[in-house]
Amino acid sequence: MEIIEIQNEIVDEFNMFDSWMEKYEYLIDLGKNIPKISNENKTDDNIIKGCQSKVWLHATEDNGKVNFFADSDAIITKGIISLLIRTFSGQKPQDIIESNLDFIDKIGLRQHLSPNRANGLNNMIKKIKFYAIGFNKKINE
């Protein structure tokens, strides 16, 4: 599936819930099934700054596609990053770089995030795009 299709799918899923409680519960479930980063990749370099909770993100490239792995010590944070992974894992770096991220606003998540967490979310997205830029360079060399 293309990034935009996955994003629309996520927006549809979240629209099924009326309350933030259900949205949170869904996020928590997603967090439990995150593609886990391996322990040896839980390095300081892979920590995303700007979160009250710790977040590690690692990426690999395989046949021109990027795969992401992550973990966090907070479950809601894990849920948020697993949404991003679902969107971007298995995609081409170029597509990741060009992707639009307004689906996060559409699922009504941002208004339920503290400024600190929203800041953390922005840093996760930045890190994902950085990985994509790096792999894109490598592929085009």
Partner: peptide, 21 residues
């Protein structure tokens, strides 16, 4: 072993303002 940040975020949505961190 629940992260304080998770609890803080959830109860914030219930109108309860606490500090976490």
């Amino acid at each position: 072993d629940i992260h304080p940040y998770d609890i803080g975020s959830v109860i914030d949505n219930m109108g309860v303002a606490v500090r976490t961190g």
